[in-house]
């Protein structure tokens, strides 16, 4: 690892200002990608700004829905997750599990226990690894990413593999989304890394809007799948998802699986995601 200067940020604003102060500074959240990369000497940030101890960036809040008319139906709560909340904290939040079990289940299957105790939701989406799990969830849930300077919709936030709409000196504070009426995540891990070879997140909002996103499979990161969305909009069922002919165009081929295999897995994982929803 090259020499770097460590800063412990006092709050989000302080982190943003420290970040803006140096062109080669990096935010350190859980460090589950950044630290290994630094150890490989492939990253040499001059400054590391640690946000893991910032209280305002941690925790999950669930705000009950305001419309009273449809109380019996599931979903509609406003869920906010702090950027520095670990995967372990998300996975083990009982209230969140009641409101949106798809996201707690997703968090429970990221990496291994060591990763889950350090890795954070903010770190995951800021890195936007093309095989990460959270980008799929936030895109399908139509989440909003709250930063130190603005709010960004997930559709605008993820701009291709490893790239986001974040500007220099901008720090993610939290993400929020409305609890879906139904949602599920089907993940097929790469046997070696256990990142997603294919991960499909399906979500149906309380208004009946269906969004389906796919991670791991696209050659430019997470994307929404129009074919699956339209099939599940007209018929929310595993069979409907399985019936979609998923093409291999634009999908990734690597030493673990070719595009045809990934196309097959998108269909299978979509089906399983709906089954679990």
């Amino acid at each position: 690892m090259y020499t770097t200067k460590y800063h412990k940020a006092s709050d989000a604003a302080n982190a943003a200002s420290l970040l803006g102060a140096s062109p080669e500074a990096k935010i350190l959240a859980g460090g589950q990608t950044l630290i290994p990369t630094m150890k490989q000497r492939l990253a040499a940030p001059t400054d590391l700004i640690d946000i893991s101890g910032i209280a305002e960036l941690r925790g999950v809040t669930i705000e009950a829905r305001k419309k009273l008319g449809v109380l019996k139906a599931k979903g509609g709560e406003t869920i906010t997750i702090g950027a520095a909340t670990t995967h372990y904290e998300v996975a083990n939040n009982a209230d969140l599990a009641a409101a949106c079990p798809a996201i707690t289940g997703l968090a429970a299957n990221i990496g291994d226990p060591a990763v889950r105790h350090r890795g954070t939701i903010g770190g995951s989406i800021a890195n936007n690894d093309p095989a990460a799990d959270y980008p799929a969830a936030l895109l399908a849930l139509g989440a909003t990413i709250h930063t130190t300077s603005r709010d960004i919709s997930a559709d605008d936030f993820f701009t291709g593999m490893f790239s986001t709409a974040l500007n220099d000196g901008e720090v993610i504070k939290s993400v929020s989304f409305q609890a879906p009426a139904a949602a599920g995540y089907g993940k097929f891990p790469v046997p070696a890394s256990r990142y997603a070879m294919v991960g499909v997140f399906v979500a149906k909002s309380i208004d009946g809007d269906v969004r389906v996103s796919v991670t791991g499979a696209g050659d430019d990161g997470v994307f929404r799948h129009a074919g699956l969305e339209s099939a599940l909009t007209s018929d929310w069922s595993p069979a409907s998802a399985a019936g979609v002919n998923v093409g291999a165009e634009g999908l990734l081929s690597d030493i673990h699986g070719n595009a045809a295999y990934r196309a097959n897995l998108i269909g299978v994982m979509a089906k399983r995601a709906v089954e679990s929803a």
Partner: peptide, 13 residues
Amino acid sequence: QLGSRIIDSFASK
């Protein structure tokens, strides 16, 4: 050695 999964995508990008 470390980035084989993204080399092709990155090159085409």
